[in-house]
Design a protein around this nucleic acid. Structure first.
Length: 579
RNA sequence: GUACCCGUAGCUCAGUUGGAUAGAGUAUCGGCCUCCGACGCCGAGGGUCGUGGGUUCGAAUCCCUCCGGGUACGCCA
């Protein structure tokens, strides 16, 4: 059960609606659009009146009359065409705060029936450095993973490594091209392997024959030619080691490090199953499945005998159903691939390989430059992830003192702080907008950690930490919340929204709901902080109450940042000279 | 050509599924540090919600037209 204020009010509304014989689906209240008039509002009377052809104000008045008798509400009114405005009593709010303060989940409910969600995000490729395109999948995927776990679901995340396609043949071909054979392959490190891939990529774009050769090698690799397999194993291992470091830096974590290659055997089974069910056919030498509408067909087996990537994804669905017992599979992948997923999902349905499983593609927009086109470095190249992180760290260092300039901090301490702020800034920027809609990466404004940014929230936390340190954190457990002014009341009402926010982020798979709320919560606290002295409050009761409230805000903000995959530094240092 | 997405303040974006006076950040201008961390707070200006129609008590939101932008469309992944 949830301690949420909104739920409590909804419960009361439900009771009143059933008592009056009204459909309870119209009973829901929401945070008021008119804070000058009320705390919550219910618009159900308007919708009801439309259906039943009655006067909305009359219905609203009946409901309002019932609400009047409840002492939890300070003021009830019917306004405009039939809005029911509900204002809460300060005691009711204060009691709710006390309840939330005692609960380790801050009154946030868990889902009634936990399910198993397999999450597919990351999607790195062997021999290729992670670039900004990989950033969003990792950052968004990690956030959704944490939100789902907090909501009570079981999540199994899989990085789904790109280790089995034509690029593998291309790179092997390139090594053979240079060395004559693959004997030296196992001496190559990640940089050398990446260099081979880059060369191979250029060569295959220009030279159709080289591309053909790469295709043949790919097919032989997939068919198990020992020499190729051995070299490929090395490429894969070195790449995975490098990629793990990258994701570590982003604080993104995967339960499984499976790749396309792991689906190879199942791919064969899918081809057989499709043939057996009579839904596949051979067209131009390729084995395909035709789909509904005017969607292009799925290519299972290419005319050269190689498995297409759609087949790999379809086989992976089967594995996730059979082996991982997924109830739901989420793909956090660039939205430009939405057609691909529609095709795969439809095929999975035709084949009946994952009955009852909800398959969902969470498509995200691209990271764009100032020109609105996909982000490029100033010299026109693709920005890789490590460079982006370095860039952000350098910006942070401009406003943070070095270890020499401040007492009590080692170089490692400073470096950790720089890292927390830099990664927090990158991640928050990525998560503050709707994930479907892409965003503009402002290279020039990136230094400014003011306004709606990760560091703003980190700063709010650090400031509360400072207050709690001075007050002595241990002795603020006692005391009751009392509401003494408007800012304090607004802050409490903001805290009370937490449960609804988490539920919404979970339902919509939308981390920006949380980033937005975290920002406004920090903002409410700042406003409160600016007008009300916490440690020198008017009375000792008010001081105790405010400390308790401050601690709640700090703990909630930390939890919210955690859900976004962002760390909260204990302190935020600032250069003495910086103004 | 076919399908899908987008157009809201100078700029970057919200807008809880049809509700009241469309909100934030940034930028600009003005105020607030002898007082818990000013990476902060308060205030001001800034809008034909791309256009034209329709649905209804009520539209940024739903339907249609047009204009402008984007993306994807059989053997790359």
């Amino acid at each position: 059960m949830s301690l949420s204020l909104e739920n409590t009010i909804n419960q009361k509304m439900n009771n009143i609606f059933s008592k009056l014989g009204l459909d309870t689906k119209f009973a829901a209240v929401k945070v008021s659009d008119r804070p000058d008039l009320s705390d919550f509002q219910c618009n159900g009377a308007l919708a009801l009146a439309k259906i039943e052809h009655k006067n909305p104000r009359e219905i609203a008045s009946l409901i309002a009359a019932e609400l009047q008798s409840d002492s939890s509400f300070a003021k009830i009114s019917v306004d405009g065409p039939g809005f029911i405005n509900i204002s809460l009593s300060d005691d009711f709010i204060a009691n709710n705060m006390d309840e939330i303060a005692q609960d380790e989940r801050f009154g946030v409910a868990k889902v009634e029936k936990p399910i198993t969600i397999v999450m597919d995000f990351g999607g790195p490729n062997v021999a290729k450095a992670l670039h900004v395109g990989h950033l969003r999948s990792a950052v968004i995927g990690e956030a959704i993973q944490r939100i789902e776990r907090f909501a009570g679901n079981k999540v199994i995340s899989d990085v789904h490594l790109g280790d089995w396609g034509t690029p593998m043949g291309m790179i092997l071909a390139e090594i053979i091209n240079q060395d004559g054979d693959l004997s030296k392959t196992e001496s190559y490190n990640i940089d050398e392997i990446s260099a081979f891939y880059k060369k191979a990529n250029i060569r295959c774009k220009e030279d159709e024959q080289a591309k053909e050769k790469a295709r043949i090698i790919t097919a032989e690799l997939q068919n198990g030619k020992p020499e190729y397999r051995k070299a490929w194993q090395h490429l894969r291992k070195v790449s995975v080691d490098a990629i793990k470091k990258n994701y570590e830096a982003l604080d993104a974590h995967f339960d499984l490090w499976l790749g396309e290659s792991d689906a190879h055997e199942t791919c064969g089974k899918i081809v057989a199953l499709a043939a057996q069910k009579g839904i596949s056919e051979v067209d131009d030498g390729a084995t395909i499945i035709r789909l509904e509408g005017n969607k292009p067909p799925v290519i299972l087996v290419k005319s050269d005998g190689g498995f297409g990537y759609q087949l790999t994804d379809i086989a992976t669905i089967k594995m996730r159903y059979d082996d991982l017992h997924a109830d739901e599979i989420l793909y956090v992948v660039d939205k430009r691939q939405s057609l691909h997923f529609e095709q795969c999902f439809e095929t999975a349905d035709k084949l009946g390989i994952a009955p009852g499983v909800k398959l969902q593609h969470i498509g995200f927009g691209t990271v764009n430059g100032a020109d609105g086109k996909p982000f490029k470095t100033r010299d026109g190249g693709v920005m890789n992830l490590e460079d982006l992180i370095t860039l952000s760290k350098n910006k942070v260092r401009e406003s943070i003192p070095t270890a020499d300039e401040v007492d009590g901090y080692s170089e490692a301490d400073i470096e950790k702080l720089v890292n927390q702020i830099a990664i927090g800034a990158i991640k928050f920027q990525d998560l503050k907008n709707n994930i479907a809609s892409g965003y503009v990466f402002e290279l020039d404004d990136f230094a400014k950690f003011e306004g709606k940014t990760g560091p703003y929230i980190q700063y709010a936390i650090a400031r509360i930490n400072s207050i709690l340190r001075k007050a002595g954190e241990a002795n603020i457990k006692e005391g009751k919340i009392v509401i003494t002014n408007k800012e304090e009341r607004d802050l409490a009402l903001k805290i009370a929204q937490l449960n609804a926010i988490i539920i919404r982020a979970h339902n919509e798979k939308e981390p920006s709901v949380i980033s937005d709320y975290a920002y406004t919560l920090a903002q409410s606290f700042s406003t409160f902080y600016n007008v009300s002295s916490i440690m020198n409050a008017e009375t000792t009761e008010a001081a105790a109450s405010r400390l308790k409230l401050a601690k709640m805000v700090r703990d909630i903000l930390k939890q919210l940042l955690y859900l976004l995959g962002i760390e909260a530094p204990e302190v935020m240092l600032k250069k003495a000279s910086a103004e």
